[in-house]
Every structure is written in structure tokens, then in C-alpha cells.
Design a protein around this nucleic acid. Structure first.
Lengths: 216, 216
DNA sequence: TAGATGTATATTGTATACAATCCAGGACCA
DNA sequence: TGGTCCTGGATTGTATACAATATACATCTA
């Protein structure tokens, strides 16, 4: 099994990863223009690999490139966030349904371990990653790699906004409780209960995030 | 309303479009390696814009790039084709459900016009485009642009294989009949009938394509 | 002969240099 | 004043040149 990451990584790939991280963590904010010469100099590379990285990020939807004007960090409108959650709803409930019958004890144990990590005192900075991992572990037994990759991309886009602490604090405990119940339903192979809880889980997360977006 | 295409197109964009077309039409076949110098010379450009185009196509899933080894035209396994159809099923039935109540007479007329085009004697070479346009027109009133773009990407990937004439001939008449009925159900706002027909339509297309893939 | 190791050549990856384009701000005019 | 047309600097887009890497083949060794 291949991790998907090339052993010998090219500068362009490293730069793409780094810029993506900066966008996800908010170091690069939505709407902010990216000056190629400046950023390339800061990273100690030429503009060529940076430009290739930007082309890739543009295709992934993290930046928007306009000819001869340059790249800006992509912004998500509330409408777009709602649509992304809608897509999640359709695809994740489907994957969960497929996954539950295929789950092994190993998978359930991995979910337990992940839940422990979520309860770690200073989880907040890593919450985005750990939360996605939880969902990923649940869906892996469904054996739908393309869908999973697609969902990861969506999660990444949404996570930029979930980092707004307002949302974090209010939805955090609820998320933990729901994750806990989800594992229980998976363990008892109760597909309807699990799917319906997941549906509520996603809708609630969406509601919280969108409310906080509308507030500011 | 913006077409999405930049007025002043850069060489890299034109090359990306051209290479994508060559892949979709089978001029570049799955698994075939892409030699940068050779292709760049053939197109009369340098390798820089070609490389940027390849990075974009890689992110879209049309080519696979391995460091220091180059790009090869992506291949789809039967398992992957099945998964793509599964995603279509989930997302397209959802979009249709949303779209039907929002459809106007204009939309229905556009569907009629498209159907006429499908009946054109030598539609075969343009079938991929026209077929997608049919589905796109149906889903546009749902007003879910991100989902629609995602589905277009999936359609493009599948179309490469739908061009195998075997499938074409056998599934062609059926597709026409089903498209016709779909319009009728949309016109009478019969959501359950339309959705269930669309579901069968997608499943049948998948079945035909996969059967012909397994044959060869 | 089979396998390992070195070397030449092809190919990709990156830096530098230059061309094309955009944009802010000033000159000019009605 | 307000609008239009320049113009120069900033920025992006592309070509060329060079560096890094991979692959095929020859050579060597046991």
C-alpha cells in the first residue's frame, strides 16, 4: 500500500503543501493576494515551482487565479459553505451505511483511540485534523477511495472557518458526545440510528458555523 | 453572468484545455506517458506552460505525475468507474429533486431543444458534450454550482470510456427514450417518478459501460 | 552466466532573463 | 470639474539555460 506521497518530493509539491497549510491555518486569509516574487523569496525558491504549486491549489479550489493579475486566497460565501455541507450530508451518510457492515474490531478500536485524542486538554489547534481523522476512520471500511478524497478536500475547505473560536467552543462538547454515540451505534451495527445521528451531527455543525459566520 | 473562462487566456490555460480534450477524445490513451519536450515542441510552446497545465490536469485527475518520471494519462479501473457512477447517483438524484420545483418553461424548452440535438443523425462524435449538457440543464435550477462543477468533472472522466462504440450503439436508443421520459416527468413535476427514472438511467448506463469494459 | 556496479544519455525540475500585461497617477482637453 | 489618453513601474507569463534525477546499457566480479 502506497501512502500517496512521493518519496522524493519536488520543491513544487513541498510549496503546495506549505501554502495549503498556511491557508488552512489562516496565516493566509481569504481574499488576500499572493505576490509570487515576494512569497518565492520568502521561501527561498524561484517563481517556477511556486507557480506550479499555485496552479494545483487553484484546481483544488484553495486559491483563485486571474490571468496577469495573480492569485488570491479563495473565499467561501455562506451559500458555498451551505452547499459543501449539503454535499457532505449526501456522501457521508452513504459511506457510513456502506462502512458499518464492513467494520472490524480494529476499526472500532481506532475510533476509540481517536476519541481519546479528541478529549486531550489542548486539542483545539489540532481539532481540524483529528476531527477529520475520526470521520475518515469511520468511512474507510466502505472502500470508496475517490469519494473519501473528495470529502477530505471539502473538510479542508470548511475547517478554515471552523477555526473561528466562537464556533469551536459552542459546538465542541456536542461534537464529542455525538462522536461517542456514533461509535456506539457502529459497534451495535445499528445502521439507521448511526446514519440519522450522523445526519443530525452534520446539520448541527453546519448550523453552528453558518450562524457564527452570519454574526460577524 | 460570467462564463468562467478568462477573456485573455494564457498559454498554460490553452494547453490544459487542449490536452484535456485529447485525453477525452482518446487521442491520448490511458497509461500513455507524456514527454514534455516532445509535446511542447509539437504545440510550439516551451515546457513551462505545459508543466503548469499538467499540474492542473493532475489535480483534476486526468493525468498522474510521478516525480522525475513524468506524467502519464490517468487510467480508470472498473472499480473506480463504478465508484464514480455511485457518486453520480447520490448527487444527481439530489440535484434533480431540488431542481424540478424551480424549473421554468425556459428550462423545459432548453431540454426539448437539447433532445432534438441528441436525435441529430451524426451526433455520435458530439454525444459526450450534448449528453452532459442535457443533465446540466436539468440540474441548473437547483442552484448548486459547486456540485455541478464536481459532476462535470466526473462526467468528463467517464466519457472517455463511453466513447467505446460498443457501449454507444447498445445504450444509445435507451438513453434517448429515458431522456424523453425525464423531460415529461419534469414537466408534470412528478419528482418521485423523475428521480426513480434518473436512478435507473444512471444504473443502466453504468451497467452497460462496465459490461463492455469487462468484455475487452 | 547472474548479479552488482559504474557510466552515458534522456528526461524532468528549477533558476535566471526577458516579454507581455496591468494599473495607478499625471497630462491634457472640453 | 470630469473624462480620456498616455506613461512608467510593478507584476505576471514564457523562453532559455542549467542542475538533478532516472534509466538503459556496458563493464566487472564471482
Amino acid at each position: 500500500m502506497d501512502s500517496g506521497l512521493p518519496v522524493k518530493r519536488t520543491i513544487a509539491d513541498q510549496v503546495a503543501e506549505l501554502v495549503r497549510q498556511r491557508i488552512l491555518t489562516g496565516q493566509l486569509k481569504g481574499g488576500q493576494p499572493i505576490r509570487q516574487e515576494h512569497l518565492a523569496a520568502e521561501l527561498g525558491v524561484s517563481r517556477i515551482p511556486l507557480r506550479e504549486a499555485l496552479k494545483q491549489l487553484a484546481a483544488e479550489g484553495f486559491v483563485a487565479i486571474t490571468s496577469h493579475k495573480g492569485a488570491v486566497v479563495a473565499e467561501l460565501s455562506i451559500k458555498e459553505v451551505e452547499e459543501l455541507f449539503d454535499i457532505r450530508l449526501r456522501l457521508e451518510t452513504w459511506l457510513l451505511q456502506l462502512a458499518i457492515p464492513a467494520m472490524t474490531e480494529r476499526d472500532l478500536a481506532a475510533l476509540d483511540r481517536n476519541l481519546e485524542e479528541q478529549r486531550h486538554p489542548d486539542i483545539l489547534p489540532r481539532w481540524g485534523d483529528v476531527n477529520w481523522r475520526f470521520h475518515e476512520i469511520m468511512y474507510l471500511p466502505a472502500d470508496r477511495p475517490i469519494t473519501l478524497k473528495l470529502l477530505k478536500n471539502i473538510h479542508d475547505k470548511i475547517d478554515r472557518y471552523l477555526r473561528l473560536e466562537v464556533t469551536m467552543r459552542s459546538g465542541f462538547d456536542r461534537a464529542l458526545r455525538e462522536h461517542d454515540s456514533l461509535i456506539a451505534f457502529c459497534r451495535s451495527r445499528d445502521i439507521p440510528a448511526a446514519v440519522s445521528l450522523l445526519e443530525r451531527h452534520i446539520r448541527e455543525t453546519a448550523r453552528g458555523l453558518i450562524a457564527s459566520l452570519k454574526m460577524q
